[in-house]
Nucleic acid binder design. Sequence first.
DNA 1: CGCCCGTTTGAAATAATTCAACACCGGTGG
DNA 2: CCACCGGTGTTGAATTATTTCAAACGGGCG
Lengths: 244, 244
Amino acid sequence: MPEPDLTLFVRKLERKGQLAAADVEAILALPFSHKSVPPATYLVREGEPPRNCAILLSGFAYRHKIVGDGGRQIVSLHLPGEAVDLQNLYLSYADHNMQTLTQAELAVVPMTALRSLLDERPAVSRAILLHMLVEAAIMREWVTNIGRRDARTRLAHLLCEFAVRLNGPEQTGSLYEVPMTQEQLGDALGLTSVHVNRLIRSFEAEGLISRSRRALRFADHPALREVGDFSSLYLHLDDQLILG
Amino acid sequence: MPEPDLTLFVRKLERKGQLAAADVEAILALPFSHKSVPPATYLVREGEPPRNCAILLSGFAYRHKIVGDGGRQIVSLHLPGEAVDLQNLYLSYADHNMQTLTQAELAVVPMTALRSLLDERPAVSRAILLHMLVEAAIMREWVTNIGRRDARTRLAHLLCEFAVRLNGPEQTGSLYEVPMTQEQLGDALGLTSVHVNRLIRSFEAEGLISRSRRALRFADHPALREVGDFSSLYLHLDDQLILG
DNA sequence: CGCCCGTTTGAAATAATTCAACACCGGTGG
DNA sequence: CCACCGGTGTTGAATTATTTCAAACGGGCG
């Protein structure tokens, strides 16, 4: 196993805003401890004060909230390379839970180190801010997806988003693994697992997707985009940091 | 009419993070043009590159997206004192629309001026970042509200949120005006205006609220919070900026 | 006065949930 | 090696929340 480090995280930030060599070094010099955790590990619990910020070196994670009647809503999904607790950076307690979806490798960075990095390096601060803006844009799309699209469209939309975030915009017909159970998909979409199941089966019956165990293939990618009312603009993939 | 200025905006930022006198001065020195606009004025349109950032001196605004079948989803509401285009600060085009809800007074600040302010003043940058974190927290709650609560709970929740954001946490039984039509409420909640109407009437019949024209009184505030599964924690009202 | 936008109400239609049972699959222990 | 187990996926039938369609009402404003 390679010595774990933060290069993946740096690369994600660099893709957005241009960082000077000194900025990159400062990030890589961040103190962290390495951790490997099983699926369904809690990284943050609602109500906790955030002491650390976990960066996903590998594996997937999700953010969720529990409502009064026990229902669960997944509010975001996180891919390898993402810093998972940035949302708590300056807040005194977490308003949501964060849990791993799969087995995952983490770099756990003390919040204080992160905060002083941001104070000292405006370029890093801008890059992080831009990253948060994109996260917010994704959340706006989720609100829209859940609020105003029917179940079929909603699911197709999420599948498209996931594929694009994972493989970039041009993964026509590609194979990928959705690391979620149908119940988790339901919790992300505001649907029941039963209904998600029926929708998946009908996508399959219509030849939009094909499956083998948990892996999923976009049999007809353009059609699925169409069904999902999907456009990747909100992901701001090509957005570069605007300066001045 | 008083000479318009940015003190309300400053005060909102100050409530969160402590700003030095020099920071406050720098914000107040921001160049802006003053504008008074009627209800339903578009401040930003999806696809536009953001050149300016409007700050609401008075009046309300909302952010929304349009889906394929013509449906509209309101993704956030904005109160006087809020900077409305911060979400586009570093993005090259807007992924949503921004529209005034009521008649409004605006301070229109050039994006470039705002960006250089942030570069020069880390404290302001932190305060803005904290403000964005709170906005994100609200959006997580909206996703949860729309995705996992039934229509009745959902509406009660939104009414509670609005009351607290407007008047602070202790406005028991207070009178306030919801500046939205029932159709707009529906678009914010992922419901139809017809259904919103029925819910409002039933709240009224149960003595939870009372109305006179557009104004609304929380006749039984604790009960409405209960119905709405509402807790104000996610608004992070008492959160102070954490340093170091 | 009359018009228009927003509200109100009812009845019929439908999308999605609920409940319940069963099948499948990979993993574990006998 | 097989048997069993728990979690996940699959399917059907009945129920329900919400939408749709349509019509009427009300009040503020030109």
